[in-house]
Amino acid sequence: MPAIEQPSTTPAIVPVILSGGSGTRLWPVSRPERPKQLLALTGEETMLQLTALRMEGIVGSGRPIIVANTAHAAMIEEQLSAVGLPDGLIVLEPFGRNTAPAIALAAIAANDPAAALLVMPSDHVITDLPAFHAAIAKALPLVSDGWLVTFGIEPDAPETGYGYIRMGDALAAGVNKVASFVEKPNADRAAAMLAEGGYAWNAGIFLFRADAFLAALAQFQPDMLTAIQASVDGAVREGSRLFPDAEAFAASPSDSIDYAIMERAEKVACVPVAMGWSDVGSWDSLHAISAPDAAGNTVRGDVLALGASRCLVHTDGPRVALVDVEDLIVVVSGADILILPRGKAQEVRRVTDALKG
């Protein structure tokens, strides 16, 4: 694909990859010790590898900063090395404090106030990379001017599982000021917003200068900024790994970037984009983005489907045989087996809650 040139006034983009999630909605394959972002669910590469590889073709993009769980450090290093990605900085959270503190760690650890941070969850799918890169190019001039930019997904269905962004006035071609953020709606409200137009799904992908984000944090979350700054000041560096001070980090409030910053700041813009995006938040959503066979089945592993239709079957070992069934999700991982109807994938949470005791 053609390379994206950045405006001369814009510094190199630093990818910030958030990899702290546990991915429990894809149990039993995804588990806290090896969550979905470290698994190859949609292709040969893992979701983390695919996320990092999205920066190819963007001129001047810098080495990534990955904010992750300490337990995953070795796996992350191995996976980035396996696909020939440059060494980055792995910032290892002592424990989870949601996305705002995680991004603050990266903004401070970047050690460059003018750095343009491209914040990406590590467990999303984007199939149209040229569209994503074009959206980044649209955002860069505003980023240089201190705007906090979010990338909204052009909705194609009245989804109730996502938050929405309501577009305000146009700031440039394909870029709008954010009028408001909308909580996850019920079905009627989602259908009304889709019919009205001017809304986008909130994908949790952002682009802003480090100093603009930290200034907003100082204004709206000063206690968080103080705690995160202290945790980085007291951090220990071991090769590519940075260990923030746990005691200082524990003093930070836990909050998402949306609640802590984006819903409060004045200079917030959105670039709506259709780029083949999915958060792969459930087995149903994985089925939706996969290429089915002639009977509508999506299979991975040793699967024998006889008269089965519209099923998702994922096995990492034992052979699974389905006979004359339809619309099932069957997942086999180690000694665990999950079976449930398609369309009910969110019910996996009941299983993981029950297993916690």
Rank of each mutant, 00 (worst) to 15 (best):
A137G: 11
N111I: 08
L140S: 10
F208V: 03
A131E: 01
Y164S: 03
A134M: 05
T127G: 04
A172Q: 10
A215P: 04
G161R: 11
L148H: 09
F181H: 15
R209E: 11
A109K: 01
V182G: 01
A109Y: 02
A215N: 12
E183I: 10
L194W: 11
V143D: 01
A179W: 08
A191T: 14
A218P: 07
A210V: 03
G146T: 13
A212Q: 10
H124C: 14
G174D: 05
V125A: 04
L217A: 15
A114L: 13
A195G: 09
H133I: 01
P155D: 12
P155H: 08
G204D: 02
A139G: 02
I108H: 04
K177E: 12
D211K: 14
P185G: 12
F206H: 09
A134H: 07
L171A: 09
A195N: 14
V125N: 00
G163Y: 03
A173S: 12
K177D: 07
V119G: 00
I165S: 01
F132P: 00
A134S: 11
D156W: 11
L171F: 02
D188N: 13
W147D: 00
F206M: 09
A218R: 15
G168Q: 07
F206T: 01
L207A: 07
L148N: 02
A212C: 13
A187C: 08
